[in-house]
Amino acid sequence: MAVIRLRIDLGYDGGGFYGWARQPAMRTVQGEIERVLHTITRVPDGDESEPLRLTVAGRTDTGVHALHQVCHLDISRSALQRCVGHMAVPAPTALMHRMQRMVPTDIAIHRVSIAPDGFDARFSALERTYVYRIADRSSLVDPRMRGFVHHIDADLDIDAMNAAAATTIGLHDFGSFATPNPGGTTIREVKTAYWRRIPTTPLIGVAATMGESYRTPAVESGLLCFTIIADAFARNMVRSLVGGCVQVGIGKRSVDWFAGKMAVPKREGSTGPIAPQGLTLEHVAYPSDDQLAARAEAIRAKRTL
């Protein structure tokens, strides 16, 4: 059976899902998309000859969002061709159009394309970018954004939080802030990690003849955002790092405490994850096509310090 690997780019509002990974009797992103794929291709769910299983760049937890997620799908040429029907478009485009119409409204299919040779959505990825958004006492709390912004009723010290975040950059064992998969490790390489207050700016330029009442603010104006880029992330790693930084920001813990947790990777109660709704997977980066297979092979090796 001729098999084609497809790359699927998508986004989703994680608020209504029990995470990415398919689970029995739970509504998950993977479960919803695979259900739609079986319907479109007319392949029965449970058909071992055509499992239609998605492999994702990074599994997101319950309540975590994705602006740009990537997964791949191995599908037989015959099943893919059945997606075309009466549409005069290539089969991957036909599948994309049908998925866009059939997925629930909290999922958006951006693109479906034939994957280059050697592409693996998970193992070929160079880096992932996450952003955590907080509205603190210095921010305007906008109730319309409660689904993807976490509200903290405190003044946060951004300088102290950045000092803590700086200790995460580089190759470290994040065992104090993450849990490994079975047989895995919590060693990861963080390339960038910083906190930034989004400037308060108008949505559009204001003409000289218009009054102050027309200065509609940009939606993220005033929010405190944590941006972190790493080659990969262990389970609960980003939310736990954010939680630790917030404890430093409100003065409950010191930068030295945070640095100590980085130096001695031991999981305990004070380094648990913060609420999920503030976290969004923003981007997944891949190498050039000729480096995809080599990257996948290298990243499969178990890491050490």
Rank of each mutant, 00 (worst) to 15 (best):
M1S: 12
A2G: 08
V3A: 03
R5Q: 13
R7G: 01
D9N: 10
Y18R: 12
M26K: 14
R27C: 04
E32K: 12
H38F: 10
T39I: 03
S49Q: 15
E50N: 13
E50T: 12
L54S: 08
T55V: 12
L67T: 01
H68E: 15
Q69N: 14
V70Q: 02
C71D: 04
H72Q: 02
H86R: 15
R98G: 02
V103F: 09
P104D: 00
T105Y: 02
I109P: 06
A115D: 02
P116G: 03
S124G: 04
A125H: 01
T129K: 13
Y130P: 00
V131C: 14
Y132E: 12
Y132D: 07
I134W: 03
D142P: 08
A154Y: 08
A154K: 08
A154G: 07
D155P: 00
A163H: 05
A163W: 00
T168Q: 03
I169V: 15
G170I: 04
A178M: 10
T179K: 15
G184Q: 07
T185P: 07
E189Y: 10
V190T: 08
T192F: 12
T192D: 07
Y194I: 01
I198S: 09
P202L: 10
V206A: 12
V206S: 12
A208N: 12
S213W: 03
Y214W: 04
Y214C: 11
Y214R: 07
G222Y: 01
D231E: 14
R235I: 09
N236F: 13
S240D: 02
G244H: 03
V246Q: 02
V246G: 09
G251S: 06
D256W: 05
A259M: 10
G260L: 08
A263Q: 11
P273N: 00
T280C: 11
E282I: 15
V284C: 13
A285I: 00
P287L: 05
Q291W: 01
R295E: 10
R303M: 13
R303L: 14
